[in-house]
Amino acid sequence: MTLDSMPIGKTAKIESVGGEGALRLRLLDMGLIPGTEVTVQKTAPLGDPLEISVRGYQLTIRKDDARLLSVREENK
């Protein structure tokens, strides 16, 4: 499953980070690395981008970019 298809309010663990170049490095720098927990908070009023919470802060990420993160939902 990828991050963009996660239901709102659910938490998942990142399994791998795809993409390339500046975008991928930016994702890694922001703390989205394999093993990190992310929670999808909401979508923007126009349906895109997403607001997620990671490492105790809020981040906005476009759905196209969220698709690069494969995640596994945590059962909590």
Binding site: A22, Y57, L59, T60
Partner: peptide, 11 residues
């Protein structure tokens, strides 16, 4: 060329 990624903090 690639625009700068829009991965932005919401403070």
């Amino acid at each position: 060329g690639k625009p700068v990624p829009f991965v932005m903090e919401l403070p």
